[in-house]
Design a binder for these strands. Structure first.
Lengths: 227, 227
DNA sequence: TAGATTGTTAATCGATTAACAATC
DNA sequence: TAGATTGTTAATCGATTAACAATC
């Protein structure tokens, strides 16, 4: 019962990627696939694929493999993609607009029901048919509309306060683009996209590649101690 | 020597977060901090902090802790933030603009040197002082300007081809926002931001929370086999 | 049936945490 | 010095991979 409690985070992080590849396979008209073939395609071990899927029950068949469409649908259900989610976007800047315009979202059941900003120039504008509302209307809006997810695309300085307001309004999931750790109650989900951290991993790896010839040192030199 | 080879990915992923928190501590005027205090602030174990930092050498002092400013600078160096990176953005849509307008990037040494698109309406426009160029000019541009990083904000269908072109031009790092796995040579870095995967983790967690009451099943029912 | 491939257990590998001696 | 806290080794935990019996 409740099959998907206690599934490790590592597994969950991989599910969307399985889902995407299976979608591509469907588009290609592939009907069945073995863990071995999928393994080659995705660059993960077949063992890992089978282990991951078995966390949720038996989706395959010995001697046959997995039915692509069936597996795709099942993973979709696991990921909760079989229903709609009402999402608001806080911040109608470039990032907020990018998200609002991201047509694919609605396809997968993420419906943008409101966009909010404090900038008078934005307020009243319409983005993809959704009007930009004044942040002062947030509470009224929330009492008339269920908000499943709030995307936070405001600057760091405002993000924490906005999140607090939304938590009070009962919002249980945040998609956070601000460079802060939101502090929310235990039962509230935060998924953060820290773009600057992304860039730092790139610069780390770039400078590492160069080091492979160059050589650099960090911290105290402890002569002879490390090699 | 060449201290930072063979550092595990898990460690590297945490470095930007240390860096951000240390930056906040500097702003607050904090001069020194122990692994224990930082541990409370960041919600990680003190042991992990010490282990992580010791991958790069001894930054602390027994009985004292870590000098915040010194540690911040050292981590900055490790992350390669002590130099500039030339970045181009492929795709002048909302997401491309969001990145281009992200003022903070230049602060940290990421300089946007070019923006490219195929849409005639965009070409010639200027975003933050950077003109939007025709994609056909990419090769010419690359021969006159070093490109350290390319941000790919074009649709999935175009992303793979664009990345191939850029690899041929010698670009060694990609910041990929398209929903595809870019296939690049071994020595090329790809950092992907798959927004839809983010959303799926949110929907997974939301539907899991609801299951905690509801109950759902996936896959074959094997009565009595699992509890 | 024989062959293929899963589901699943056991072995390995890696990452995190605990503990403590070294040392500021 | 005594107290605090690091650097580092050892113990634990968890995740990945290998192996193979079950079974389609």
């Amino acid at each position: 019962m409740g099959e998907h409690r206690n599934i490790s985070n590592a597994v969950i992080k991989r599910l969307p990627r399985y889902y995407r590849h299976l979608g591509e396979l469907i588009e290609m008209g592939t009907e069945r696939i073995s863990s071995g073939e999928l393994s080659k395609r995705m660059n993960v071990t077949a063992s890992q694929i089978r282990q991951d899927l078995n966390n949720f029950g038996g989706f395959g068949q010995q001697g046959y493999g997995y039915n692509v469409k069936f597996l795709y649908d099942e993973i979709g259900k696991i990921l909760g993609l079989d229903r709609e989610y009402q999402m608001v976007i806080i911040g109608a800047g470039n990032l907020g607009r990018a998200i609002a315009n991201y047509t694919n979202f609605e396809k997968s059941g993420f419906v943008i029901s409101g966009i909010f900003d404090i900038n008078p120039e934005c307020i009243g504008q319409s983005i993809r048919g959704v009007p930009v509302r004044n942040m002062t209307e947030l509470e009224t809006f929330a009492s008339n509309n269920k908000i499943d997810i709030a995307a936070i695309t405001v600057p760091k300085s405002a993000a924490v306060e906005v999140a607090d307001r939304l938590v009070k309004l009962g919002v249980k999931a945040f998609w956070n683009f601000a460079h802060v750790d939101l502090n929310v109650p235990e039962d509230v989900i935060v998924e953060s996209v820290h773009l600057s951290e992304n860039l730092m991993r790139i610069s780390y790896n770039l400078s590492k590649s160069e080091d492979e010839r160059g050589r650099r040192h960090y911290g105290k030199e402890k002569a002879g101690k490390r090699i």
